[in-house]
């Protein structure tokens, strides 16, 4: 796990979503999430939980284009089973376009690493999704809903999954140049039982984001 602390840099998908009233410009932020990784395979069920954290860089253009780079890392504790411990590192990029004041369509790619006592597993993930922002009237808060399909999931040693999706919901707040968000996220990936036994994976948890607008103008 100490190795993970040394490799702290990574980039992940939408961590601090932009509220509809956010600034067009550049922002930087941090993300922390308490995640639970659940796995059901030939060895039975396992569960690991822990804190991951990282940084987020976001660029918004006035014409509605959005770009995000995220890097996170952390350790998930196998609750007494050392074989279930795993270090998570993820780097991701996302490009989106705001097609309405409340809707962003996006596509992204991520590279994820799980390091366990048994070895290292690499994931390559491609996603297409949509994110809805609904403002609370007269406040600086927004409701967030996100859904994404993962048409490309490539994991070494595993076949293509039969089902892969990400969902999230939560709220975001803005205080001047500061933005904060709280959301519940869940990723589900079901691998089929072909040459290997059936394998079900799930990564879920509560994520907190904080970002600061470094440049830009009010939209």
């Amino acid at each position: 796990m100490s190795r993970l602390r040394e490799r702290w840099l990574c980039v992940i998908l939408p961590i601090v979503p932009w509220p509809a009233h956010a600034q067009a410009g550049f922002s930087a932020g941090a993300r922390a999430a308490v995640l639970t990784h659940r796995l059901d395979d030939s060895a039975g069920r396992s569960r690991a939980e822990g804190l991951v954290s990282g940084v987020v860089l976001e660029l918004r253009l006035e014409r509605g284009a959005e770009f995000a780079l995220t890097a996170t890392t952390g350790s998930l504790d196998g609750s007494g089973q050392p074989s279930d411990d795993r270090d998570l590192t993820e780097v991701s990029a996302r490009a989106g376009v705001r097609v309405a004041s409340w809707l962003v369509l996006d596509a992204g790619a991520a590279r994820r690493s799980y390091r366990t006592p048994q070895g290292r597993q690499l994931w390559t993930i491609g996603s297409v999704g949509a994110e809805v922002h609904v403002p609370f009237v007269g406040t600086a808060a927004h409701a967030l809903l996100r859904g994404a399909l993962l048409p490309l999931v490539s994991v070494n040693g595993l076949p293509r999954p039969t089902l892969a999706l990400q969902t999230a919901a939560g709220v975001s707040y803005r205080f001047g140049v500061l933005s904060a968000s709280l959301r519940y996220e869940l990723e589900r990936v079901d691998f089929p039982a072909r040459t290997t036994p059936r394998r079900l994976e799930q990564l879920s948890g509560v994520a907190v984001g904080l970002s600061i607008g470094l440049s830009g103008v009010d939209r």
């Binding site: 659940r38 059901d40 969902t167 869940l186 589900r188 059936r198 079900l200």
Partner: peptide, 10 residues
């Protein structure tokens, strides 16, 4: 959304 196989999220 969770798969029953891995157990419901708390």
């Amino acid at each position: 959304v969770p798969n029953d196989g891995v157990g419901k999220d708390h």
